[in-house]
Amino acid sequence: MKNKIRILAVIIIIIGIILIAVKGLVFDLNYAENKQIQITIDAEFELKDIEQMAKEVFNNQDFKLNIVGEDEDTISIKIRDYTDEQLLQLNDKINEKYGLSNNVEDIERYYNTNVRGRDIVKHFVVAIAISTVLVAIYSMIKYKKLKPYKVLIELVLKLVLSQMLLLSIYSITRLPISRITMSISIVLYLIVLTVFTAEKEKQINKPSEE
C-alpha cells in the first residue's frame, strides 16, 4: 500500500512539473496582474450588496472587493479584465441603489502588475534553510544508529518531495497561489519534520521493544 502511494505521489509530481514548465502556475488576484477600479460611494452601503452587483456585472468572473480609504467610503475591485460597458453597468447599478449621480469618468482606474513568485518566497528561504540544517544535524546525531547520511538523505528527500507534491497539486488542479499557500507550505514542512522524527523513533526503538 505504501509503495502504491509513493508511486502515485511520484506520478503527480512528474505531471505537476511538466504542467508548471508548460503552463506555469495560477496566481490569485493579490499576486497576479490585475486591473483595479475605485468607486466612491457617498452613502451607507453593505459590502455584500456591492459584491452581488459586481457578480452580476462581471458575469461571475473572479474579483476581489475591498473597502479603501480612511473614511471607508470607497470600494476597490480588482479583476483580471473588464470592459467599459461593464464599468458603466456597475456605476449605474450603484447610482440606482444608493441614489447617487457618479460619473463613469470619476471612477479611478489602475493597473497592478504581478508580484514575482521569487519575491513572495525569498523572505522565507533563509530561515527555512537554517532550521533545516539544524534539524538535519540533530537527526544525524540522534539517529546515528540508522546511518547518519541515510537519515540526512531521507529527511531532505521527504522535505523537498512534499513541497514539490504540494506545488504539483496546485499546478494540476489550477488552484491559484494565494496568501494561504505559504502557510500551507510551512505547516506541511512542520508536519513532515514531525512525522519523520516519529518514524525514526519507531525504527530505532523497534529492536528494543522486540
Binding site: 539544524l134 519534520l193 514531525t194 522524527t197 523513533e201
Partner: peptide
C-alpha cells in the same frame, strides 16, 4: 517530547 524537538528547533529559528 522527543518527536517535537525538531518542531521546537524550527519555531525557535522562525
Amino acid at each position: 517530547i522527543i518527536i517535537i524537538i525538531p518542531l521546537a528547533i524550527v519555531t525557535i529559528v522562525f
